[in-house]
Amino acid sequence: MIPLTLADVIYWFNALFTAEGLAGVVFLCMMATVVAGAVFAVTSARLIRSVTGLALCFIGVAGIYYFLNSPFVALMEILIYVGAVCITISFAIMLAEPRQEDQGGRKNAMLWPMSAGAAVLLFWGLTMLAGKAQWPAIPTRINNGSLEDVGISLLTTYSMVFELISLVLLVAIIGSIVLARAGRSKT
């Protein structure tokens, strides 16, 4: 790998400028976006910066959904997470106005090495598990997973769940209004 000959350079150049090669480059960029955004969201000391990192991470996740043959879910990811959840979180940061100096980690100094160790252990274990497991081969598909098929099975097989989640969202809207209004009338 290290002593690159001219033939190697030409091989990589030709592999890069095909449709598959450029798709691979875009995939690597999306992975880098996810990793950078997630690290930024978790480690930055100010909350408004970590919301920005979260939005960046979700844009990368939307790109990964695009690679998984579901452009509809990718668009929904950008619409719901980047467009709604991140904006709501930044509104809450503006309303709750946390102190600027100590938004970082916890006061207990032992906690962050322990949680970092636990997270590294979890990541290592899950990665090893994913590498070792034997996944079954691709079975024959009963449809091709397009938006039309998603709509059909939302309104036939999953219609009960569809109704239930609208109920959940209604309860969430009313509950958040009640919770956020509760203290206002007293003072």
Partner: peptide
Amino acid sequence: AFLFAIGFYGLLQRRSLVG
């Protein structure tokens, strides 16, 4: 797995509720 692990780390380590 990376997203899960880094979220786990942040959930344990962050001090503020929004974090």
